[in-house]
Design a protein around this nucleic acid. Structure first.
Lengths: 339, 339
DNA sequence: AGAAATTACTGAACCGGATAAGTGACGTGA
DNA sequence: TCACGTCACTTATCCGGTTCAGTAATTTCT
């Protein structure tokens, strides 16, 4: 089947290609009557502008890119990314921007993908997640002058727009809540230690615990997987002075931690309170349902998409902080039994 | 920063644009010496062909599309799609095809996206998931002659290539296993009843139970969400003659079912055995870990991607069946206590 | 040795839009 | 009434590749 082009419309309307282009793009240069006639014909024959032709002349691909740098094993179960993608789509679909996805193995590969996308003019901008210290992707994006929104800072990103959430505020709320319940030995199972937002959380956790007079505030590093989260939990629970509450950096590790506690014969929340970071349906799924630091990840993604589209349009875009996650108490937190 | 084009290479190599194109695409028409010189220059200046220009002349966009028609709530937690996407990428990345993603609300919207993509020449082909009876997407794709691989049949898809997994074989194995353990009242919590593969499973479940002499083989329809899965479980467990084993159509509902059983004071697997369909890390995460019908979803996706790329290349592609899922026994299945 | 075939290119057209520059008709002000 | 400006278009060029037709030089065949 032949795709209709503006030449087809031009022929049927008895005008030139140029007139059709002006009419469909809302440019001046055609009368209102002609414009309506052309638009009607375009509608009728189901015209969609060829994105390649448009990209070639107009220099806009009308697509943005996202690289995912996590093993398939984690991606499949980690609800965060799909939530983020859903949020992106809300904004992108409305302006008929496409989202191009690429799963890669290493940050080094990510830079190669950025270079290729840029050379191919395949995307107008990219989302960058999992910001690290001295992230090698940042200088590449700055060099290419590829518009980008960096999610997961704040950090040093040169000209690139940033969006982050107030992780320090969230963890402070969680620790205060656990203290109010009577907990004194609070531990944390952290995400990948390289990631900047993990560092922010670790620093904030240590500081708030110190300021509240909690002697030990142990963070066990982990990698967001269930296996590692479970192992970290086991290590914490076999200590002589085991914690009475654990905060996990994501929901998957929290669920794994719950399972380890049950396996060791500890009751949750009686012997151990659990707080999960990010409140996916997973948290309400298990028994007991998990107290969680909730934030609207889709809204977070939508916010990032608005920033990226603005950056692509050449508008000035400020770095922003998304609101603080709030604590959603459920059955996994209670006063410690011995208090 | 200026992107290098073939004209730049041509100038530096002292040849014409055409020669560069032949050289870089492995076409005959240039000597081996010239080809190597041109390739070296392209490497040196970091040349990537502009995908828009290529698509415009060559009529290949070097991108394929996937539409996801599930609410964000489900997408975020359902590991199936991310597994599938990871599998797609293995094949696509190797041939530097891009994957374009679009989240939509209804199958009707999906057809609109297909039409737009086709008109825009944005993708060379699409993956279709969640095949339904009299699926409205099929005639549209056939009309547009857009290459496609349909995942989740088998069904009536005209010229479109299909890939499905042997769900009947898998469920037969699960039922036989539960019977061998001594279970006689086996129920099933199904996925969305509209989907063709759900029907295949329901039919096979009913038939195998009948052939093995199990009086009742109830399937409670559900929608893949944890909430609905939990509700369906509760409904089954308050019956006077409650089942001693339940098979769930996905892992999320199985986890929710486990949680409902625990909440009702039933022990798993003592009072209730649970089998999950699709073995994501979720299944090993909970306590007890869930017996599951395992299949390699990434391999399934990779297989589909190979089929789609072949279809795009114009090669004849046969409908195929991916191997049968196999049972991975874990802690959630055991002989029923009263037998 | 001369005709034919092959090799290694060049030049130009083409894909389908966007857009700058050009054109004729019409209205307007001095 | 004539120069000028504006409107509503048309024409032509460009974007960066692919590809076909053409050509000169070299090789092959009889």
């Amino acid at each position: 089947m032949k795709r209709p082009t503006i030449a087809d419309i031009a022929r049927r309307a008895g005008v030139s290609k140029g007139a059709v282009s002006y009419a469909l793009n809302g440019q001046p240069g055609v009368s209102e009557a002609t414009r309506q006639r052309i638009v009607a014909i375009a509608q009728e024959i189901g015209f969609n502008p060829n994105s390649a032709a448009r990209a070639l002349s107009g220099a806009r691909a009308r697509a943005v890119g996202l690289t995912l740098c996590r093993p398939a094993r984690i991606l499949s179960i980690e609800p965060f990314f799909m939530g983020l993608i859903s949020g992106f789509e809300q904004e992108l679909a409305a302006r008929s921007y496409a989202l191009t996805l690429q799963v890669v193995a290493t940050p080094q590969n990510e830079t190669e993908v950025y270079r290729r996308w840029w050379g191919e003019r395949r995307v107008d901008g990219v989302f960058v997640t999992d910001l690290r210290e001295n992230d090698i992707r940042i200088p590449v994006l700055n060099e290419l002058q590829l518009p980008a929104v960096v999610i997961g800072g704040p950090g040093d990103t040169g000209n690139l727009t940033q969006l982050w959430s107030d992780d320090a505020g969230a963890i402070t709320e969680a620790v205060r809540y656990l203290m109010a319940l009577g907990h004194r030995r609070i531990a944390r199972v952290g995400g990948l230690p390289d990631l900047l937002h993990t560092r922010v959380r670790t620093k904030a956790f240590t500081e708030v615990c110190a300021s509240l007079g909690l002697n030990e505030a142990i963070t066990v590093p982990s990698d967001y997987t269930g296996e590692e989260g479970g192992r970290a939990t086991r290590r914490l629970l076999i200590e002589a002075e085991r914690p009475t509450a654990i905060i996990y950096d994501n929901d998957v590790m929290a669920v794994a931690g719950l399972s380890v506690a049950q396996e060791m014969g500890l009751s949750v929340p009686g012997d151990l309170s659990i707080v999960a970071w990010d409140d996916s349906p997973l948290c309400s799924l298990v028994h007991p349902p998990l107290t969680a630091l909730s934030r609207d990840i889709a809204a977070y993604g939508a916010h990032a998409a608005r920033q990226l589209l603005a950056a692509i349009a050449g508008e000035p875009v400020k770095d922003e902080e998304e609101g603080t996650a709030h604590l959603t108490p459920r059955g996994s937190t209670a006063p410690p039994r011995d208090s």
